[in-house]
């Protein structure tokens, strides 16, 4: 689970004294450019990007593309089927526009997903790097990590939100606590391998401090598996949040989330199946898009983990 060795070699050259030289800077960009070019040739990655863009655009432009307040009740417009009376996605049992609710739900899902991913990127890296690099910390940190990972993910998240109370913030917190150990484990695995590489030993011998070695020599090369992990994590986070709010443990209604729209629509499964189907499909598009992105990133960034095409 470590970065490609080719990149590692390139990083040694990067550490030359002429760091600020423009030519070196230009060369440094090229591996990135190459990666981006390869990503844009990856069909599944592009499909994932397309699917994610739909949701991302919807979430970002929620204010612009919806006319009605997602929480406004209008009982005389109850249970309009999609397309009926000018409601693109129909209405729910309170006459609220599902288009509006699903689009605002997208914004909330993405907000929660991004937050969980950001917290994982920071704390997963910190814990993973500390455990992988400092042997003395390894045992203690990893035992706690293993214990947290022994809990079934959703069950632990449910228990944490049960204790803290249902809210958007607590859902983010609970999902982060559940997933950070998994991220830390992946970072640790890369760091352990990189720590023993000759160029790192050389940096140690040259007298570089721990911080500098981690920041300049180890972590940049541990990024590839981390990025892959984070893209899948985004998918899990969106899915788990929907599960939590489906069970009534996420954002509190009337705030629309895909999970709580579906929970409310459950009672009207027969009369108004669109109430569950539309947010369900939105959720599926998001998760599938992120999974495809993750597959693409893994194929390009970490060829050794590739599912052979």
């Amino acid at each position: 689970m470590n970065g490609p060795e080719g990149v590692a070699v390139a990083r040694v050259a990067d550490d030359a004294p002429l760091e600020e030289d423009f030519e070196v800077a230009a060369q440094r960009q090229s591996p990135w450019r190459m990666t981006v070019r390869r990503l844009f040739r990856h069909r599944l990655f592009l499909m994932g990007l397309g699917l994610c863009s739909i949701i991302l655009l919807a979430g970002a432009l929620a204010q612009v593309i919806t006319q009605t307040d997602p929480t406004r009740l209008a009982m005389r417009w109850r249970f309009r089927a999609p397309g009926q009376d000018g409601f693109i996605f129909g209405t729910d049992n309170f006459g609220r526009s599902l288009w509006s609710r699903v689009v605002w739900g997208a914004q909330l899902s993405l907000y929660i997903g991004f937050s969980v991913v950001a917290l994982n990127a920071v704390f997963g890296t910190l814990i993973g790097a500390a455990a992988g690099y400092f042997r003395r910390l390894d045992n203690a940190l990893m035992r706690v990590n293993d214990a947290l990972m022994a809990f079934p993910a959703i069950l632990l998240a449910i228990a944490i939100t049960a204790v803290l109370g249902a809210s958007t913030f607590n859902a983010i917190l609970a999902l982060s606590i559940v997933y950070i150990p998994r991220t830390a484990r992946i970072v640790r695995a890369s760091v352990i391998v990189l720590r023993e590489m000759e160029y790192v030993q050389a940096a140690v011998a040259a007298g570089a401090g721990h911080w500098r070695i981690l920041r300049r020599h180890i972590l940049p090369n541990a990024m590839a598996p981390l990025i892959v992990q984070l893209s899948f994590l985004f998918a899990y986070a969106v899915l788990s949040e929907a599960t939590l709010s489906f069970l009534g443990l996420g954002a509190v209604p009337p705030t629309p989330t895909w999970g709580n729209i579906m929970a409310e629509g459950r009672q009207y499964l027969v009369e108004a199946p669109w109430i569950i189907t539309i947010p369900g499909i939105a959720l599926m598009i998001t998760v599938m898009g992120l999974n495809l992105l993750g597959d693409g990133l893994r194929d390009v960034l970490d060829p050794r983990l590739r599912i052979q095409q």
């Binding site: 998918a235 599960t243 489906f246 569950i276 369900g280 959720l283 599926m284 999974n291």
Partner: peptide, 8 residues
Amino acid sequence: GISVPNFF
């Protein structure tokens, strides 16, 4: 399969 939430 890996993208459809099980409750959906």
